[in-house]
Simulated assay, not measured.
Amino acid sequence: MSRASLEKRPREVAAMFDEVAERYDLANDVLSFGQTRLWRRAVLRAVDPRPGQRVLDLAAGTGTSSQPFLLAGAQVVPCDFSLGMLRVGKRRQPLLQFTAGDATRLPFADGVFDAVTISFGLRNVHDPDQALREMLRVTKPGGRLVVCEFSQPVWPPFRTVYSEYLMRALPAIARKVSSNSEAYVYLAESIRAWPDQAELARRIQQAGWHRVAWRNLTGGIVALHRGFRRDDH
């Protein structure tokens, strides 16, 4: 898959992630200049996991994003549709309960998670709006959603520089650190095609989430959206 499209083919996207799984975490650290670690800490604070709570971490990949929830005492379920990612994750972190699953048809009962989070994965889902509705379905009343996703830099001159980096420098760097640099061309294009902060907030709210808000990280390169399922009581 060489071109990004909002009509994504799940099998092709999964195969792409299977291929880059082994060096995916290293590539992310290099391509983000180490910012991924700061973003993960921001997600952890936003999710605010408590001991004994159940957290669903979607698009969890190799489980790097899930480990902080486990260390906080939560019961975390890392879920991904790339079997290659899950295999690498299980080998590296055998204590995590990795689960294969499609975000648009989650293999979980209604209202079983205190929090659901997805980092840098929603834009790769075939139907993001259906995925947001599924996340709502599996969340307990009063529970919370945290979406960490690439977005639009808020300062116009920086936005131009960032766009150039995505389409020119990122694939060149990826050739050095990744087994499939074409995958990062797709990822760069998918970032450019993704809605901005306000539009994503609107779509989260339209999916049924309540009290939706966001804050920018790294000048808007990444946005952290949060929402809550209404308490039925």
Rank of each mutant, 00 (worst) to 15 (best):
F108E: 12
G101P: 07
G121Q: 14
V154W: 04
D127T: 14
P141G: 01
V112S: 14
P157F: 06
T117A: 13
R137K: 12
R159T: 04
W155H: 10
Q130R: 15
A115W: 11
V147P: 05
R105D: 13
F158L: 13
L145N: 12
R123M: 06
F113P: 00
D102T: 14
L106C: 08
L122H: 09
T104W: 05
V161E: 03
N124C: 10
L132G: 04
R137V: 10
V154C: 02
V147F: 04
K140E: 00
W155E: 08
F98Y: 14
R105T: 15
A103I: 05
A115F: 02
D114P: 04
V125T: 06
F158M: 09
R159L: 09
F150M: 15
G121R: 05
V146I: 12
A115Y: 03
V161T: 09
F120C: 04
R105M: 05
R105G: 11
T104I: 12
V138L: 05
R137C: 06
T104Q: 15
K140V: 06
F113N: 10
P128Q: 10
F120M: 12
V147Y: 01
Q130H: 12
G142H: 09
R144D: 01
V161N: 01
R105L: 11
T104K: 05
G101L: 13
A115M: 08
E149A: 06
Q130Y: 00
S119P: 00
A100G: 14
V161L: 15
L106M: 11
G101M: 13
L132I: 09
L106H: 08
L145E: 04
V125C: 07
F158K: 02
E134L: 02
G142D: 06
D129C: 07
E149F: 01
G143L: 07
L122A: 08
A103V: 04
P128C: 10
V147S: 04
F98W: 08
A103Y: 00
D102L: 06
F150E: 03
V154K: 09
G101H: 14
G142L: 09
S151C: 08
H126L: 08
Q152V: 06
T117S: 15
T117E: 01
H126P: 01
D102K: 03
F98C: 07
F108M: 11
G101W: 03
D114A: 05
A109G: 14
T160W: 15
R133K: 15
V125R: 00
A115R: 12
Q152C: 02
R133S: 12
P157D: 07
V138W: 01
T99C: 15
A103H: 05
A109N: 13
V146D: 07
P107V: 03
P153I: 02
